[in-house]
């Protein structure tokens, strides 16, 4: 896969809200692709991966909050 194709894939996955796949694929290196990213590609990838991580972190935080609320209910009950 070329660097162009890789960035296009990452962008498409992000637009489809497939954040976990974006993060999993983000560990692909330039050596894996056999090419070098341009500055613009690096900028796009950084935004794509960072926003995906943020979205997944929101799920984690929400799950932690739900677990905390459930524990409080049990204690109160």
């Amino acid at each position: 896969m070329t660097t162009d194709a890789y960035v296009a894939t990452m962008t498409r996955l992000f637009e489809q809200r497939r954040f976990r796949e974006v993060v999993e694929l983000s560990y692909t290196t330039e050596d894996d692709l056999g090419g070098t990213f341009t500055l613009m590609q690096l900028e796009t990838l950084a935004a794509c991966v960072t926003m995906s991580i943020n979205m997944l972190r929101l799920d984690e935080i929400e799950a932690e909050q739900a677990a905390g609320a459930e524990a409080s209910r049990r204690v109160a009950g």
Partner: peptide, 9 residues
């Protein structure tokens, strides 16, 4: 993560 330049958690 090799594709994060900077991020505020």
């Amino acid at each position: 993560n090799p594709n994060v330049l900077g991020r505020k958690d």
